[in-house]
Design a binder for these strands. Structure first.
Lengths: 232, 232
DNA sequence: CCGATCTTCATGACTTTTTCATGGTTTGTC
DNA sequence: GACAAACCATGAAAAAGTCATGAAGATCGG
């Protein structure tokens, strides 16, 4: 098992290559992105625990990307830049970054700051790939859910939805938050998507979908996953 | 209400004084300690959300104090030192510090780092999600209120109203203030909304809604929530 | 082309919010 | 005390919004 997943966001290929080597050598799983837009997409797919984010990037700048990512509390953000000015630091930190490192940086210091930041990520410590809750077994690796004897295959969106709900078990998760977590930041209003998928989710995990037990609706707010989640 | 409690740990009186002035000015509640031992004691009594910890101190050093404090995940630690070496930074961060600032530091940067670190402290996060008052339990996460055995579901407006009232418990909150807090700044005059919702609130939380005990009306002013609110 | 998945939409049942009319209460003035 | 004016509680109904559902179209990879 890796020490964690890290997403490197920088427009310079050379930096990405160096970072990848360094971090992989330190035991992390690494993916990279060239732009802020790409980073936001990979945030959903790769699910990093930490993002190393360059401030100076063409298109959506690092600060804008940082603000967009901050919506998810389950990821730490360390910003990087060549500008070692006080104003830059304050701006980055107030955009939601957890830490700030100026280039050129020393590798040991960067690694130490990464370790420190990862300690604070709530879920992290790598989410287990299989969990049990009540008579349910959800296998995120195999993309299946088993209730009693019957196993069902979960489609990608169903899986993402279920994952986010179980990660926030026993709290009412707002529509908007769910939509943004599963579909991306631009889809906060497409409540219909949610309803359609909640329906098919329930068909697969609930004993009788008319009176849901695990995925209940929280009227006017969103949905909620009920049950004591234990890794398995 | 303060922005948070901060404990300043440094053996030089002058630093403590400057820090206290700066942080108090930024809206924080401040206490200080001269030694690591004293800091550990104040950690229990003062319950700071964040500790500013000097590395160089006589007696128990800053690093040892940091390691001891790290047992409590509900406090952020920022270490300070004049030694701006890489080794010092790595050592501090691996001792459990969340961040590292070298002296002399810029005040805006320090404040920004404090804000960033406070975002990560789990508990603090201002208002608790569950409170008890008398025979009432209000769960803002689950959006329910429980009186004795009976639990009721709260609609969004009811919840917002109750939240604002409990946050200002034992004071008369004017109509206008309540309306603006719950409905928005343009609704200061819609006293009818208030009356309708106060009524349904009372139906859910009062034993007999005719003689309200928790939500009483403050004639000619507004409403008031009575009772000792304790987080739970 | 086929099948699986995702998106879009219309429908009726349901809940919350808004609006309003009624009658009772308090306050202040004569 | 009588009275008007402003306030308050209540119940009921209209308006607006939300939910589950089924089904049809769009998209994508093989």
């Amino acid at each position: 098992m890796s020490a964690g997943r890290i997403l490197v966001v920088d427009d310079e290929p050379q930096i990405r290559r160096i970072m990848r080597t360094t971090l992989t050598g330190a035991g992390y799983e690494v993916d990279d992105a060239k732009t802020g837009e790409e980073a936001l997409a990979k945030l959903r797919d790769f699910r990093p625990e930490l993002v190393l984010l360059d401030i100076n990037m063409p298109g959506m700048g690092g600060l804008a990307a940082c603000r967009a990512m901050r919506a998810d509390p389950n990821v730490a953000i360390i910003m990087l830049t060549v500008h070692n000015t006080e104003a830059a630091k304050v701006e980055a930190l107030d955009a939601g970054a957890d830490d700030f490192v100026s280039k050129p940086f020393s590798t040991p210091e960067l690694l130490a700051r990464i370790r420190a930041a990862l300690r604070r990520v709530p879920v992290s410590q790598s989410s287990p790939s299989r969990i049990r809750v009540g008579e349910l077994t959800i296998d995120f690796g195999a993309r299946t859910v088993t209730r009693g004897e019957t196993a069902s295959h979960l489609t990608p969106k169903e899986l993402d939805l279920l994952r986010y709900l179980t990660q926030h078990a026993n709290e009412a998760v707002p529509h908007r938050e769910l939509l943004q977590a599963v579909w991306g930041p631009d889809y906060g209003d497409q409540v219909d998507y949610l309803r359609a998928f909640i329906k098919s989710l329930r068909k697969k995990i609930e004993l009788n979908p008319d009176r849901p037990k695990y995925v209940t609706t929280e009227p006017w707010i969103g949905y909620r996953f009920n049950g004591a989640v234990e890794s398995s």
